[in-house]
Every structure is written in structure tokens, then in C-alpha cells.
Design a protein around this nucleic acid. Structure first.
Length: 463
RNA sequence: UCCCCAGUAGCUCAAUCGGCAGAGCGGGUGGCUGUUAACCACUAGGUUGGCGGUUCAAGUCCGUCCUGGGGAGCCA
């Protein structure tokens, strides 16, 4: 329907109202018990019998049921309420009352009248089960459903909590660029694009720029989208995801771990404070493990972790598990190692001092053991895996030059980065937290694609 | 790049050893006690992902390609 037609219909509707009912949002409905109100939304579902009509409505802030018995609303509307298609947009007038029998929110609306703003065609997402591929093809509509609606609101709260934490702890937001001239880490595959007459790449990390920023502003962070062209087809990978990356001058590895720990406790706490009930009831996630997220987190070294994994492997009887937990000396962990390790802890696990050989060129080596890097991974419990990677950065010019050579990277690409070690270099550290993995963990979701409004994966660029 | 699984009605799935392609939901029609993924009856709806092969006969077996899903590697 054209907007003009919709407006004139709304004017007619309001003109008919004897009393000028107030438009309220469903999330504030409990404040209006006994009052006549307007709900502006969509028809989520309907049921009917000969003498009753039940319209389940959603308005973007929540879900509520409207009820009418025969004779309580105009007869034509009573008929219409039995055949109006799912997801038609409607404006409903009714009286708010408490009602324990009603689904969703413990309140319902006694219908007085309603008008259709736009009648829906056949809505593709039905009330029964659908497959993942179908739902992702219809992601633009799937967002309207009960669970997805909740997840997006939790995601928004987590983003706000992340910003609030850093803003309230003396960090300055310094946005890193998205177009970059070369690989930041030289490991991951980058998306290549044209930048006028030259090649450019989409950023896979804002960290190197944060190292420059923290030398100017002491404590900085960036928070934005990140792009990885890796051909990873798993539920833990997206090609476009959001990452927050704090960086602090004069911070060492222990301080970095303190920061990551304090930050995670805050973010989980904020999510539970605002959405704990919804996460438990709507997403059906057991929130006890989240309520366990207090300081201190266990901190174990890579070498300690290796011997723990070896013990777990020795105790395993299943040959497949034994095979998957095999580990060569100095190897990085794979998903099976992380999963088995985190199962033994009731809160996020910090693993520090991995072999320098498996880490990026900018990691500072441990002066007590030059084969180890001053880095840390934070592994979420319940099999959610790595949500934070970080550590102390190499601050010596000579050592950094040697690492760039050892990794086969062109020095010319890092001229400005090396300048940071020429002009008043100091110890500094930081980390990156993957937003979608954090949302998946807090919401208890199986797959990352539900944690972001429109997921980009190896095989999906639409909708 | 490699390994595994799947593709049948708009959607979710079934079809025994290779032997007449079916059900639920959704749509339509009618009924119905405050329904909770409401329920009941009737009804329409199919080139079984594409191509090729084996066979009297292929949704089913073989080859190949496409699409999707899961995992490895890599990573947040």
C-alpha cells in the first residue's frame, strides 16, 4: 500500500475513535493496565473458534495477544480476524488487562477495533520447522521471529556494554581504517579490492593502527567490522565479523590479562542484568554458567595446557578422540584441544605463552624463554572456543625487524609501524574480542550466523 | 584445498530388497467449547537439483557437475 493511502486510513481510524487512545509500545504495556491503548505492529499469528478470535501481535518491542469474543468488535472485523494473513501490518485498539492464560508477557489486549495498514501476501516463514538454508535465504524476514528478535536485542546490549566499559575506563575510541595497503599479520587471507589505480585490502585487524594510537592517547580502542577471506565453512566462522581491539601503552602481559578478565566479567554481567530472563526463557539457555563468570579466571601456560591435554588423551578410550587430541611438540591447538580443555573449567580459561613460532610477528617473546610469546588466548567455556586473542607487543626495533624477516614479510610495508619503535618505544599490550563469538556464547547459540543481522559466510552474500 | 552428509509438493520430511511418489505444516473451503506451533473434515498442489549411464523397470544403483550443511586446516 502506498504511504499516502496508509496515512489516510490511519486518519479515518483515529477519527472513528471515540476516545483518543494513546499509542504504546508492548515493552511498556504493564504501565497501562485498565487503559485503552493503540498498538501499531504486525500480525504474528492468529487462532480462532466460532465465538473467539485471538490475534498475536508484535510491534518490534515485544509480543502480545489481543482477544475478542463475538459481538465485542464490529462483525466485519470479527470475520476479517479469522482470515487476515500472517505478518499483515495492523493498528489495534484495545484495553490492557493482566491475564495469566495469555502467552508472551502476562498481559493481553481486549480488542475494541483494529485496522489493516497493509495486508500481507503468503508469508514464507510458517509456524512449523524450517531448515537453516531456507531461513538464511529469508533472513530479512526471519529477523521478525521471536528468537531472532531477542538475539538482536542482546547483541545491541553487548555492543553498548563493550563501548561503555572502555569509555568509562579512560579509553579513547580511535577508529582504525578498513581499506589497508597490506596484510596486517601476513597470515590470514585478505579480501582484495581496487583503490583507484592500486590494490587495496579490507582490514583483517585494526590492531597495528591501535599501536600507533595508544602512543598518542595512552589507552585506545577500535570497534568495527573485520574481513577474512579464509575458506572456513564452519559454525564458528564468518567472512565479515565485528571485533573490538583495545591497546594500552605501558601495559605488560599480566596487565593485559587483568584487563581482559575485568572487561569480560563486566560485559557478561550487563547482558545478564538486562536480558537474563529472556536468555533463559526465550533462547532456552541455561544461564548458570554465565552467572559463574567472576574473577579470577584460571590462567595456565601453553606448556601446562599441553600436559593437561596429554593427560586427557591418555584417559580417553575412544580412538577418534585420541586421534583428535594428538599434538606435536610446539603445535598450536586446534578446536578439539580447546574444547576438551575448556570442559574442565567453569569459567573462561586464559592460556598464555604459546610457542612464538605459531604466533604473529609482532608478539613479544618471553625473556625467560625466548621460544615462547607473551600472548594470551581467552577460551570461552561450553565449547565456544577462542573469543579473545592478544598479548604484549614487540617493542624493540631490532627484534621486530628480525621477526619481520623471519616471517618473510616486506619491511617496506611496515615503515610507519617500525617508526613506533624508533620514537620513544614503550612496552604495550592489547587484545581483540570477536563480537559474534561472544554473542553466541552468551546467547547459547549453535551457529554464528544467528548472532549478526545479515551473516556473510564463504557461500553466502545474500540477502 | 581436503574429508563427511544432504538435495523428493511453498516449507519440514517419509518412501522396506530397484517394483503404483506419501504425510504434517502452509494455501483454499467448511466446522469448532480462552486458543497456546490450537484442533477437526474436505480440497488443490510433483519433470524426485542438472546431465549421462546400468536395468524390463531408477527417488533408490554407478559416473559427473551444481547447490546447501557439518568438520579439518586457519582464525575472533
Amino acid at each position: 500500500m502506498a504511504p499516502v493511502a496508509a496515512r489516510s486510513m490511519m486518519r479515518r481510524f483515529f477519527a472513528r475513535s471515540a476516545t483518543m487512545a494513546e499509542h504504546v509500545y508492548i515493552d511498556r504495556i504493564a504501565d497501562h493496565v485498565g487503559q485503552e491503548v493503540l498498538i501499531k505492529g504486525w500480525l504474528y499469528n492468529r487462532r480462532s473458534s466460532k465465538k473467539m478470535r485471538f490475534l498475536q501481535l508484535r510491534d518490534g518491542t515485544g509480543f502480545i495477544q489481543a482477544v475478542a469474543a463475538a459481538g465485542e468488535i464490529p462483525e466485519a472485523k470479527f470475520e476479517l480476524a479469522d482470515r487476515l494473513p500472517q505478518e499483515s501490518s495492523i493498528i489495534v485498539r484495545g484495553i490492557v488487562r493482566k491475564e495469566e492464560r495469555a502467552p508472551f508477557c502476562g498481559h493481553e489486549l481486549g480488542l475494541i477495533d483494529f485496522d489493516v495498514v497493509s495486508e500481507s501476501a503468503d508469508y514464507p516463514i510458517s509456524k512449523k520447522d524450517h531448515g537453516d538454508a531456507f531461513l538464511m535465504d529469508n533472513r530479512h524476514l526471519w529477523l521478525r521471529s521471536y528468537k531472532q528478535h531477542t538475539i538482536l536485542r542482546v547483541r545491541a546490549t553487548i555492543i553498548k556494554a563493550i563501548r561503555d566499559y572502555f569509555d568509562d575506563h579512560g579509553f579513547v575510541l580511535v577508529d582504525s581504517p578498513i581499506f589497508t595497503p597490506a596484510a596486517c599479520e601476513g597470515t590470514s587471507t585478505l579480501f582484495e579490492t581496487r583503490y583507484f589505480e592500486q590494490k587495496a585490502f579490507l582490514s583483517q585487524s585494526g590492531q597495528l593502527y591501535q599501536e600507533a594510537a595508544c602512543m598518542a592517547l595512552a589507552k585506545t580502542y577500535c570497534f568495527g567490522p573485520t574481513f577474512r577471506a579464509e575458506k572456513s565453512k564452519t559454525r564458528r566462522h564468518l567472512t565479515e565479523f565485528w571485533m573490538v581491539e583495545p591497546e594500552v601503552a605501558y601495559l605488560d602481559l599480566d596487565g593485559d590479562m587483568d584487563l581482559a578478565e575485568d572487561f569480560l566479567v563486566y560485559v557478561v554481567g550487563r547482558a545478564l542484568e538486562k536480558h537474563g530472563a529472556e536468555i533463559r526463557e526465550r533462547l532456552e539457555r541455561d544461564i548458570k554458567p554465565l552467572e559463574n563468570v567472576h574473577k579470577p579466571f584460571p590462567r595456565i601456560s601453553y606448556d601446562d595446557a599441553v600436559s593437561r591435554i596429554a593427560r586427557i588423551r591418555d584417559q580417553a578410550t575412544d580412538p577418534e578422540i585420541r586421534q583428535s587430541l594428538a599434538l606435536e611438540p610446539e603445535d598450536d591447538f586446534g578446536s578439539p584441544h580447546e574444547t576438551e580443555l575448556t570442559k574442565r573449567f567453569d569459567r573462561p580459561l586464559m592460556v598464555h605463552r604459546y610457542p612464538a613460532a605459531v604466533k604473529a610477528f609482532y608478539m613479544k617473546r618471553d625473556p625467560d624463554n625466548r621460544s615462547r610469546a607473551l600472548c594470551v588466548d581467552v577460551l570461552a567455556p561450553e565449547g565456544y572456543g577462542e573469543i579473545i586473542g592478544g598479548g604484549q607487543r614487540e617493542d624493540s626495533l631490532e627484534a621486530l625487524l628480525a621477526e619481520i624477516d623471519r616471517h618473510g614479510l616486506p619491511q617496506s610495508a611496515f615503515t610507519w609501524f617500525l617508526d613506533l619503535r624508533r620514537y620513544g618505544s614503550v612496552p604495550h599490550a592489547g587484545f581483540g574480542l570477536g563480537l559474534e563469538r561472544t554473542v553466541a556464547w552468551i546467547c547459547g547459540l549453535h551457529h554464528l550466523r544467528e548472532t549478526i543481522p545479515f551473516a556473510r559466510t564463504m557461500d553466502r552474500l545474500a540477502p
